[in-house]
Computed example of a mutant assay.
Amino acid sequence: MHGNDGLLIKILIYGLLIGIGFVYLYPLIYMGVYSIKNLDDILNPLVNWIPTKFYLGNYTKANEVLNFFPVLMETLYVTVLPSLAQTALAAVVGYGLARFDFRGKNIIFVLVMATFIIPPQVTLIPRYIFFNELNLLGSLNAFMLPALTGQGINSAIFILIFYQFFRMMPKSLEEAAQIDGAGHLRIFFTIAIPMAVPAIIISFLFSFVWYWNETYLASIYFGNELTTLPLQLQKFVATYQKMFPAGMELSGNQINEGIKMAGTLLSILPLLVVYFITQRWFVEGVDRSGITGE
């Protein structure tokens, strides 16, 4: 009986994992298949998951519309730097809150958490006016200044991650370092930071993804001065119709689902590459830091 119960549990677990995996993979498979279909395959109801031939023309047009490589470099510019700044600031604030006792500490911690609870739309208008007065609009500084002051995208989460991580650090390590004559700054860089590598990895990757996917604030703060792949994807259809006007329909250049899917896949391809490169460190970071989700 126990053996049968164990088999049933395994079947349920594997069935659940397969179902969850299918839900996540289906959109990617759908995009991948349709992005390599030509117009004939898309219009043919008998062609579903296996195209009659491997067609890359959709990617050629999507690359031209997105202006992929120049925009990719610009996207990395407005994504990597704020992510690095936000991770560094969160580590400093999290360490200070976790390892030092001072008057008003609890109030500061509550205020930090409140920045996550309060919807960003509430503070958007006054922040926009403030940035406009400082001439920060239209430049990366509109992202960098909040990141360097603990007000970046979801900064409170990263501060909480470092706070919980540094609280678990044994005090005996600090005491031993202080006996050897090390100051707080040296302890932070030589003991705390090396131990917090999992938290750093998690914070940077999540921050990277959130800055990458941010289109609302980016469109407001950057205007026409800077752009990102997600922003280009938002106006993909309009840009395509300008580049390939309606009068060119007879040439077969009218937009179709295959071109749209190719553009979408190109816009998320860098994130997929980053994940596949860093997945080992990402999983280790989640495991060691005890983080189970967003």
Rank of each mutant, 00 (worst) to 15 (best):
P45I: 06
P119T: 01
S219P: 04
V33G: 12
V273C: 14
E284F: 01
M261R: 02
P119G: 06
I107K: 05
H2G: 14
L250D: 11
G152Y: 10
D41N: 08
E225G: 06
L56M: 14
Y221K: 04
F282T: 03
L134W: 13
I291Y: 10
F165D: 04
I29T: 08
V80D: 06
Y55R: 07
L136S: 08
K10S: 08
I42F: 02
L46W: 01
V110K: 10
S139L: 05
A238N: 11
L72Y: 05
G32I: 07
V274F: 13
T79Q: 08
Y163C: 03
N135I: 01
N224A: 02
M168P: 09
F165N: 10
L89R: 11
I36N: 05
A218E: 00
I200P: 02
F131H: 07
G138I: 03
W210R: 11
N4G: 01
T52A: 06
A88P: 00
T215F: 13
F109V: 01
D5A: 12
A62G: 07
Y216K: 01
G183N: 06
P170H: 11
I187G: 00
H184D: 11
L269A: 15
V47Q: 07
G15E: 04
F68Y: 15
A246V: 13
L12V: 12
E175P: 08
P170K: 07
G183E: 12
I13W: 01
S251D: 13
I200S: 00
I20Q: 03
V110L: 14
L266I: 03
G293H: 05
I118Q: 13
A262C: 07
K235F: 08
I36T: 05
P230W: 13
G258I: 03
R103I: 09
V112C: 04
R167M: 14
A156Q: 00
Y55Q: 04
I202Y: 10
Q279Y: 07
L185C: 08
Y24Q: 10
Y24S: 08
L269H: 07
Y30H: 14
N38Y: 08
G6D: 09
G247A: 12
F276N: 11
L140A: 14
A199V: 00
L89T: 12
A238V: 10
L7V: 05
L229T: 09
G94A: 02
I291D: 05
